[in-house]
Structures are given as structure tokens and as C-alpha cells.
Design a protein around this nucleic acid. Structure first.
Lengths: 148, 148
DNA sequence: GGATCGTCATATCAATTGCAACCGGAAGGC
DNA sequence: GCCTTCCGGTTGCAATTGATATGACGATCC
């Protein structure tokens, strides 16, 4: 167990990063979005307006990252930011038509790449991965409830 | 499938990151090592001298990252860097006594934290995770052999 | 042997990130 | 009403990272 390759957390991180790199190659290299921008666009394109609070809760991004990523998305005309009417400290983020169009262009490609990879796995292993990952996420949450 | 939480690559990345954060909390917050520094120390403390080529091959770090991380480790007195005798372009990295001592202090704590988390998983799920992760790593390697 | 090409380490510069201060705005006490 | 405290978002600055260029070295071909 003194070899890094066999050290589980490292294998997990390396695999996740490799997967992620593959997808960044789709939405980043071709469309110039960073990972954070893609995540935000993903959440916003689902439908209606979302507050910044929702965003940082539903991503692993902190408020500075949300602020800067959304600024760039706004500069690109993909989203708009308004001040929330009930609490003027909050922002309401909304995807523009251009943003939704871009999202609808990219999503199938990302899904296709994802499918390419996942369907290359032997039968049953994907289910095993799902099972294991869910259990791990739960375990991490239980062990370290403090988080950020 | 329009929810980020259910989007598999995201779940994988988020879980890996959460796990990693937990470990960084051990070697980083308490001993001031970055993830890269910890990885290098890990590899070097195993035993004898290692060339920079080995290092970047056995981590996901490129040579610039190796160069920088090892510089910091040298500044802290944890490793030494010599010029390789057979190829004077290469560097030979060796862990100092201080480096090994620090590693021997940290490793048990990292392993303990890892065990805390993994053993909180229900019976069988860890094996499933191993299986799935290996299959996924293979699939990624097959799909995108170019990599870096 | 000398020219040329590929490779490794490092330097340099721009872009990104993290941290902490700051600026409104809200909430609660008085 | 005000004043204090807390909270969300932004901004500035320092440290880090990434991309690219430079310089040193080794290997190959002539």
C-alpha cells in the first residue's frame, strides 16, 4: 500500500479528473466555457430563474466563484442577472435565449461523449459504480458533516 | 436528466473532490502541504531516488507541476534534488530524513481518515466501487487514448 | 566531429484562484 | 425611528496555475 496507484482516494480523483477532462474537451475546447460556466449554464437552462443562494448550494462553488463565473456568462450574453425583488442583496439569474440555444447545442454532445465512455464499460460495472458512489457520498457526508 | 445531481460525471467529480478535501484537511491544514506536494512526498518516501520522468508518469502532474512542487518541497527541506549522473538533463529526487519523518507522521493519519470513510460504507459497496472504478478508468483510457 | 532535432528543466507572462476587506442591504434590539 | 449585527455580493491583492518561450543537454544523422 505504499504505491500511489493502489491508494484508493487517488485512484478516485484521477479517474474523475480524466472523465472531466474528456467533457471539458467538448464544451471547453469547442465552445470556450469553463467548468464553472458550464455548470451554471446547466442549472439555469433547466428552466426559470434561480437565486445565487440556490446556485452555491447546488454546486460545489462558493460565492466568489459563482459571482465571477456568472459575470463571464453575462458578458457572453448567455445569462442575465437581476436583483431579487424580495431581498435586494440576492441576484436572480436567468438564462437568455442565446444561453439556452448554446446549452441545447452542447448538451447532446456532452451526453454523447458520456455515453461513449459509460457504454464501453462491461455489463454490470456501471451499476456497481453507481451503487458504490452513492454509498461513498453518503459515508463522506456522515463522517464530515461540517463540509465547507 | 436535467438535474445536475443526477448527471453522472458531475456526481463522480463532486464525490472525489469531497473525499479529497477530507484528506487535504489532514495533510494540508495541519502540515501545510499541497496536494501535489503530498503526492510527490508519497512517492519519494517509498524508498530510493526517483527521476522526474518517473514522477510525472506516476502522477497526473506534468513536468512543470513536478518542477514547482518539488521546488517547494526542497525549500521546506523535505527532499533533495540532484542532477542525474547518466543524463544531466534529469533530476534525481530523494526524500530527506525530515521528509520521511513527516511522511511517516502523516500517512497513518491519512489512512485512518480514509478508513473512517470507507468503513462507513455498507458491506459490499466498496467492492462494487472498486469494480466500477476500474472499469471506468479502462473505458476512459480506451475511448480517449490521446489524453494530454 | 559538427549540425540538427527532440527532450528536460526552468523562466516568464497572462489568466485564474483564494483570502480578506469592503459595500450595500436586511434583521433585530432599543 | 436609529443603531448594531449579520449576510450576500463584489473587488483588490497576493499566490497559484497554465501556456509558452528559453536554455541546457543528449541523441542521431551526416
Amino acid at each position: 500500500m505504499t504505491d500511489l496507484d493502489t491508494f484508493f482516494p487517488y485512484r478516485l480523483a484521477a479517474t474523475a479528473e480524466a472523465f472531466s477532462r474528456n467533457l471539458v474537451d467538448v464544451y471547453g475546447r469547442q465552445y470556450g466555457l469553463s467548468r464553472e460556466e458550464w455548470r451554471l449554464l446547466f442549472l439555469l437552462s433547466a428552466g426559470d430563474s434561480v437565486t445565487s443562494l440556490d446556485l452555491s448550494r447546488r454546486t460545489t462553488l462558493d460565492k466568489v466563484q459563482v459571482s465571477r463565473a456568472s459575470q463571464r456568462l453575462e458578458d457572453k450574453g448567455l445569462i442575465t442577472r437581476q436583483i431579487a425583488p424580495n431581498d435586494r442583496r440576492l441576484r436572480l439569474y436567468t438564462s437568455t435565449d442565446a444561453g439556452k440555444a448554446l446549452f441545447n447545442t452542447i448538451l447532446p454532445q456532452v451526453q454523447a461523449r458520456t455515453q461513449d465512455i459509460l457504454s464501453a464499460m462491461p455489463e454490470g460495472d456501471l451499476e456497481a459504480l453507481h451503487r458504490g458512489l452513492s454509498a461513498l457520498a453518503t459515508a463522506i457526508g456522515d463522517i464530515a458533516p461540517e463540509g465547507s
